[in-house]
Design a protein around this nucleic acid. Structure first.
Length: 276
DNA sequence: AACGATCCCTGTTGGC
DNA sequence: TGCCAACAGGGATCGT
C-alpha cells in the first residue's frame, strides 16, 4: 500500500517532470476519481493551460502547487499508481486520468480499486476537505516525544489505531505502523494511554528510522496490486520488513513466531515476546 | 469527545 | 482443476 515512503518516492520522481511544466491536456475516464471535486468539470478546466509550481507532500497526500493559487491533490488510496510516460503512450488497464504537459510527457493515474482520488482545489475548497485536519507529517514535522505524551494521556484506543489516525500523525499506514511498533518494542493492542514516557520516547524515535529505511529502498511493493515507482520499478523494502505479513515466521530479534491479530479492523503483525 | 463499525471497490487468495 | 466467497485496506461517515 502506498504509505509515506511510497508517496515520497513518487513525489521525488514527479517533481522534476512537473515543476515548471504547463498542462496541455486533461482526460478523465472514470468520474469516481474526481469525486472530491465540488464541481467535476473544474478538474479539467483548472489544470488546462496552467503551470505547475511545485510538488509537495503532507502525509500520504501529494499536494501540487499550481499557478492561480490552486492545489492539485493526488491520493493513491490503496491501489493507486502514477505512471510517467511519453505523450501518446499505451494505457495500462485501470488508467483513469491522464494529464499531459508541454514537455511531451503524460502523467497516468492508475487505480484498480478507485480508493484514491485526484482533484484541484481553491484555498476555500481545500480547507473544507476532511484532510485539512491532517496531523503533523510523520517524516518532516514529527513533534518531539514530550509533546506527544499529553496527546496519548487517557486515550483507551489501541496505539496501533492511533498511529493510523492521520489526524494524530500523517503518513503511517498498516505496514509501517506495525514496523514502527516492533522497533519500539510496543504491542499494537496496547491502549495508547498505558504507554510509559520511555515507551513514547522509543515509539517517537522509531518512526523516522523506519520511514527513512522504507524510503531508502524505494518503498514496499506487495506482490498483489503492486505499488510501483512512476518508471515502473518495484520498491524493494518488502524483503526488509520485520513483522508485516510475516505471521508464522520468526522474529529477527528473539526467534519467537510472529503472530497476526486484528486491531481496529486491520490485520496487525507483531512479536509476542519482544513487544510488550 | 472518543471510539468502533461500516462502507466503498476489485484483484487476489483460500477453501472446498 | 475450477469455482466462488472471503479478504485486503485508507479514509469518510455514521452510530453509540
Amino acid at each position: 500500500m502506498p504509505e509515506l515512503p511510497e508517496v515520497e518516492t513518487v513525489r521525488r520522481s514527479l517533481a522534476p517532470a512537473l515543476e515548471g511544466a504547463v498542462v496541455v491536456s486533461v482526460r478523465v475516464d472514470h468520474p469516481r476519481m474526481t469525486r472530491r471535486q465540488p464541481r467535476p468539470r473544474d478538474f479539467r478546466d483548472r489544470l488546462l493551460g496552467r503551470r505547475v509550481n511545485s510538488v509537495g507532500r503532507h502525509g500520504k497526500f501529494m499536494l501540487i502547487d499550481v499557478e492561480g493559487d490552486l492545489t492539485w491533490v493526488i491520493h493513491l488510496g490503496m491501489s493507486g499508481r502514477i505512471r510517467l510516460e511519453a505523450t501518446g503512450s499505451d494505457r495500462v488497464p485501470h488508467t483513469h486520468v491522464v494529464v499531459g504537459t508541454d514537455r511531451n510527457q503524460e502523467l497516468h493515474f492508475v487505480d484498480p480499486r478507485t480508493f484514491g482520488f485526484i482533484a484541484v482545489f481553491t484555498p476555500d475548497e481545500f480547507d473544507a476537505q476532511p484532510f485539512a485536519l491532517l496531523g503533523p507529517d510523520a517524516l518532516d514535522d514529527l513533534p518531539r516525544y514530550p509533546q506527544l505524551i499529553p496527546r496519548l494521556a487517557n486515550r483507551t484506543v489501541a496505539i496501533k489505531s492511533l498511529l493510523l489516525d492521520q489526524r494524530f500523525v500523517a503518513g503511517l499506514g498498516n505496514i509501517y505502523a506495525d514496523e514502527v511498533l516492533h522497533r519500539a518494542h510496543v504491542r499494537p493492542g496496547r491502549p495508547a494511554g498505558t504507554l510509559t514516557e520511555n515507551e513514547v520516547r522509543l515509539l517517537r524515535g522509531s518512526i523516522g528510522p523506519v520511514l527513512r529505511a522504507g524510503l531508502r529502498f524505494g518503498g514496499t511493493s506487495l506482490n498483489d496490486l503492486a505499488y510501483l515507482l512512476p518508471d515502473g520499478r518495484a520498491g524493494e523494502y518488502l524483503g526488509r520488513l520485520k513483522v508485516y505479513g510475516r505471521a508464522g515466521e520468526h522474529c529477527g530479534r528473539d526467534g519467537t513466531e510472529i503472530t497476526r491479530t486484528v486491531i481496529g479492523g486491520r490485520s496487525s503483525f507483531w512479536c509476542p515476546t519482544c513487544q510488550v
